[in-house]
Amino acid sequence: MIELNFEHRQAGHCESGVTSNLLHYHKLSVSEPIIFGIGAGLFFSYLPFLKMQHAPLTSFRVWPGMVFDRATKALGIKTKIQRFKNPVDSMNKLDEVLALGFPVGLQVGTFNLPFFPPEYRMHYNMHNMVVYGKKDDIYLISDTVVENKVEISYNDLMRVRFAKGTFAPRGRMYYPYQVPSNVDLKPAIIKGIRKTANNMVEVPFPLIGTKGIRFLARQMRKWPQRLGDEKASYYLGQVLRMEEEIGTAGAGFRFIYGAFLDEAATILKQDWIKEVSVEMGEAANHWRKFSYHGSRNCKKRAKPEESYDMLADMLMECADMEEKVFRKLVKIR
């Protein structure tokens, strides 16, 4: 039996939270927003040719796994990341690493995750959680979405680690094994901000960054005529689910990113970033307003002015606000 002294802390975004908690175990205190910012987690992409649950894929953050990789690399932390072909091998390796005294981060699918609130059990393969111990055939889990520590059986764990479909985790496990006790956050923060700002405003491709938001807005205007009311409402719902559902900390990660800028301003001692963080917060609140009116539309309780046109206008405004934020941030040094 192994039970590591792992502190369970809830988080807004699973991967950043897991990373922050893992480092905390190794006595390095870096907050969740800082990890998210250094890992350049914020993003936007609208990929109508990829369908998820029968609706176009909208994403508010980078590919899964990138936040952990980038953040730990930028901080000079030594990590081990592994994927597996054979499920039994992956479980043996997990046991081995636990026995060495390292808590382990796992990428899992949520469809069969027994302790997850039932309303979230859709096929979603980019969830992250930490294993911090084992009692006989039961693994001890800290999941940043769930209020308390939880447990999972050997078979269930193997099943969720080898969930299939888009972004199949293929048993992916990761853990830091050598963590410096003191790190210089400044260069990492600047690099992270530059990366995100670049992604959001500098990439010459219409489907990502603020251009992507505008593209989505233009498409959205046409949804009711092109798709009919029911399907349009479902497409809209899908955008909102990606924006607000679990693991975003609200408003498609915009709040958490703003909190990052707020902390970054203090660490870098650059006051102008503080002002930008306020603008980011206002953009986040605008996204929140968009999803509020959008959800009323989905509930068929919309007032006539809460039409797709109005929602598209709001999206355009979100894009403008974010463009302003990232045009400033791209010049950071």
Binding site: E119, V146, E147, A249, G250, F255, G258, A259, V278
Partner: peptide, 21 residues
């Protein structure tokens, strides 16, 4: 749904960034 409480971030021009479960 009242199965689980999560951590939410929010922003208010007066109070700045706050977190609540």
């Amino acid at each position: 749904y009242r199965n689980n409480r999560e951590l939410h971030y929010s922003f208010d021009p007066e109070q700045g960034y706050t977190r609540k479960v």
